[in-house]
Design a protein around this nucleic acid. Sequence first.
DNA 1: ATCTATATCCGTATAAATACGGATACAAAA
DNA 2: TTTTGTATCCGTATTTATACGGATATAGAT
Lengths: 208, 208
Amino acid sequence: MIKIVVTDDHKLFRIGLAELLKKQKDFNVIATFSDGEKFLDFYTKSQDFDIVLLDINMPNIDGIEVLNKLRKIKSSVKPIIISMYDDGNYIAKCSKNGAYSYLLKNTDEEELIKAIRIVAKGKKYFSSLIAEKMVNFMATQSVSENLLSNKETEVLLLISKGLTTKEIATQLFVSTRTIETHRANILKKLEVKNTAQLIKKASEIKLI
Amino acid sequence: MIKIVVTDDHKLFRIGLAELLKKQKDFNVIATFSDGEKFLDFYTKSQDFDIVLLDINMPNIDGIEVLNKLRKIKSSVKPIIISMYDDGNYIAKCSKNGAYSYLLKNTDEEELIKAIRIVAKGKKYFSSLIAEKMVNFMATQSVSENLLSNKETEVLLLISKGLTTKEIATQLFVSTRTIETHRANILKKLEVKNTAQLIKKASEIKLI
DNA sequence: ATCTATATCCGTATAAATACGGATACAAAA
DNA sequence: TTTTGTATCCGTATTTATACGGATATAGAT
């Protein structure tokens, strides 16, 4: 029996997905969550499952952060990313952070089930399309991955959500000057001169 | 028996949704399609269904265009929009173009089923949250085909290129106050509060 | 053991954006 | 014809962002 947890902020999607998976006799969807934070809360209480299906774009704690945390604590739970974006940067990032598979939201049922069975056995599964995107990306611009520090990425995300420097500072429990410095460094690294260009560039290279 | 067609470009979503709906004895999901064009192709051959669940953002022909076409030919098929965006403009536009309901992708199963049953009887269904967003939007803005005026679009493009208000004013041979007013109006129309959110939203809804 | 990157903090100053007001001219739509 | 939307302009005030300068502590890499 393969025990599965689903985490996606779109309720209709995650319960639909759970419904799909339930059709497999040896699959057991034990819980679903609307964001990474709720999932991690659950995880601290119970690690009795094999696979977590994770969306990338979620409120509070996103899929990539979840991957990170699971990797850091050397969790035995195997994460599978289900994203709507077939972007090389995303794929590479997820793979690097310990994802066992990367599926698109428009893959079909058979591939999803196949991926889950493969991952449950401890093997990784990346379709040829996804693997190709990842390789292409890493060949050309592996630099962009560690362009920004973790903290800078965190700040960038909050900027993109429309928070002001002051609001970000409050939320991260640091002074506004610290955030201002982060902003300045982010602008410098992305070679832009203001917020508008920053957000545009960041979405172009799928940093947000 | 309520006959339903599902149209959404994310296969996992639409088959998951179909699976959910199949649990209702009196629901019959007769077909699913990946975009508006494929759905309309099918529609020309068969109109033997009651409800179509439509995503907005789809390749080729999007949900709003489908609404338009169905309305123009006075189709008896009742369209329900299922979108990830709770945007006032989207909601108002869909309502204006004949949607019987507007649901978010994170509504729950019960509400989806309730909406379908209500719509099947020929009534419209908009949750209080959605109705409120629509009313708020319509109170302040008129629902135009083009959300932004030509001038506003021009200004938005220059903002996204990183020009400051002063630079834009110089380039367009008008005063900075004029550009400031345009900026304020753009923010209002897109329901955002600052440049960061503006650029993010504008790229999300493909305005830039 | 030393160097480097990161994360944190501070001061001073200016530029820019946002939030309130309000107004006029013109063209298009109702 | 009246109303509505667009484009233009203005004042005042506050809040944010950006640009300089410089500093310390720590962890990781060489």
